[in-house]
Each structure stands twice: as structure tokens, then as C-alpha cells.
């Protein structure tokens, strides 16, 4: 565990020292600020559209951060050959993968924290209330979803050689699931066999990332999600994350490095 944590810290440190996060954060602040400064029928208490835009930006930025940060980890280690002195130490390949995963996950978690605090300030500035628990649930689910995405990207970075193509593929898959995942079963209903069974198979196999997207509940001030459901969602995310990490390990375990 110490080894994994040591590896993770390096990833976090790298992210803190790179400009990506700051650029995206400033971009989010600027765009939200622009949207907030539009005069809408002289009414300053209109807030939901602003919450929606801010959350959309946060989601997009978090996906970009998570995917780019993860996609470059292993290729960079190999390209810059830092993996050799590292794996010459008593580090197993599993620890290496877990360390990278944990680092990317913690780093994006820290980024999320900053983003959600900003979101809280934006919404509180107009709504005068601060539903911390709801934000906590939303942030937590968001973070859990990113765990799946990061594990998937890590797997991709082992399967695909080029980090940019891996990043693009992962981004497209993630966005596709977020937009369409919920509807595949309904689309399947309208198809003929064997396409129908095929699409149903896909529907049940893919990780339903969109489950973790509770932006609408936050935007429209819905009630808390039952905590039992939160636990189930956590287990759901953990299962997919574990699956992707295991697959990554199985492929990476015996791969020659040279």
C-alpha cells in the first residue's frame, strides 16, 4: 500500500505542476462569468440556467482532465524510460497500475473539489442557500464515475500505443455512454433480431456512466438521493473499475518492456 501511495503521489504532484487544470478552471470561471453577466429581463435571481452551464463545464473539464492525465501516464513512462529505474525496484506491475490509477483518481478528485466549491459559490450567490449534502452526493457520484473512466483509460493506454488515439477513443466512448447509455434498451425495442439481442447485450454490458450524472437534480433543487442508492452506485462503480483494472493488469503483467 505504501508503494502504491508513493506512486500515486507522484502523479498528483505532476498534475499540480502542470498547467492543464488551471487553464480549464480559469476557462470554466470565465465562461460561467460570461453566462452569468447576461442581462435576462432585468432579473438577477434567475439561477438554474447558470447552474446548468456551470455543471456542464465542470463535467466537460473533469472528463478532459481525467482522460488526458490518465492516457499519458504509461506512454510517458515508457517514452521517457522512467519506467525502467522504477520497475527495477521492488514494485510489482499490479502495484504500478494501481498507483497510477489511484494517483489519477485522487488528482481528479482534488480538481473536482475546487470545481464544486466554485459551483457552490456561483449558486449560493444567487439562491442564498447552500445544500451541502446534495452537492456532496453529486460530487461523490461524479468522482465515482471518473474512477470508471480512469480505469478504462488506463486499460486503453495499455492496449493502444498512441496516447492521443487512446484519449480520443475513451472520450468518445464516455461521451457516447453519457448521452445514449440510458436509451439503448428503448432503441433495442424497435429493432429486429438478432440486432435486438445484440443491442440489449451492449446495454447490459456497458458501464452506465450516466447514472452518476445527477446534474439535473442539482440544477432543479430536487431532494437528496436515498443513501442506500448511493451505496449501490458506489458498488456498481467499484465493480466496473475493478473489472477494467484487472483487465489492464492481465495484459500488462507479462508484457516485455524494451
Amino acid at each position: 500500500m505504501n508503494t502504491i501511495w508513493a506512486l500515486a503521489k507522484i502523479v498528483v504532484l505532476e498534475m499540480v505542476r502542470r498547467k492543464d487544470f488551471y487553464v480549464l478552471f480559469i476557462l470554466t470561471v470565465l465562461l460561467t462569468g460570461t453566462a452569468g453577466s447576461v442581462n435576462l429581463f432585468n432579473d438577477n435571481s434567475i439561477v438554474r440556467y447558470l447552474k446548468e452551464i456551470c455543471l456542464l463545464l465542470i463535467w466537460a473539464a473533469s472528463l478532459v482532465i481525467a482522460i488526458t492525465c490518465t492516457a499519458r501516464q504509461i506512454p510517458a513512462e515508457r517514452e521517457q524510460r522512467t519506467i525502467f529505474p522504477l520497475l527495477a525496484k521492488p514494485v510489482t506491475r499490479a502495484q504500478f497500475l494501481l498507483g497510477k490509477f489511484l494517483g489519477c483518481w485522487v488528482a481528479t478528485g482534488m480538481a473536482l473539489l475546487v470545481f464544486y466549491v466554485f459551483f457552490g459559490i456561483v449558486s449560493a450567490s444567487r439562491e442564498q442557500h447552500w445544500p451541502v449534502l446534495n452537492y456532496l452526493q453529486a460530487g461523490l457520484l461524479h468522482w465515482l464515475m471518473l474512477a470508471i473512466v480512469i480505469a478504462l483509460t488506463l486499460l486503453g493506454s495499455i492496449v493502444f500505443a498512441a496516447p492521443s488515439s487512446n484519449g480520443t477513443i475513451c472520450f468518445v466512448c464516455t461521451a457516447g455512454i453519457l448521452l445514449l447509455g440510458r436509451h439503448l434498451n428503448k432503441v433495442a425495442l424497435g429493432l429486429t433480431e438478432p440486432l435486438q439481442s445484440l443491442l440489449y447485450g451492449v446495454y447490459f454490458a456497458i458501464p452506465h456512466l450516466e447514472l452518476f450524472d445527477v446534474r439535473d437534480l442539482i440544477t432543479h433543487n430536487w431532494d437528496l438521493i436515498p443513501w442506500g442508492m448511493m451505496v449501490l452506485a458506489t458498488l456498481y462503480a467499484a465493480a466496473y473499475t475493478a473489472f477494467f483494472l484487472t483487465a489492464a493488469w492481465l495484459i500488462f503483467r507479462r508484457r516485455p518492456l524494451n
Binding site: 503521489k9 507522484i10 504532484l13 524510460r81
Partner: peptide, 23 residues
């Protein structure tokens, strides 16, 4: 290794601390 490259964003001290933790 034959060619040495290390994490460019780290200082020598941080690099060594990292490896020390691994050991």
C-alpha cells in the same frame, strides 16, 4: 539504465524521496 531519464517535474531530492518510499 543505459540511458537515464527521470521525472522532469521533480527535483533530485523529491525523486530520491520517492524511490526511498518505494524501498
Amino acid at each position: 539504465p543505459e540511458q537515464t531519464y527521470y521525472y522532469k517535474f521533480l527535483t533530485a531530492e523529491e525523486l530520491l524521496r520517492f524511490y526511498a518510499e518505494i524501498f
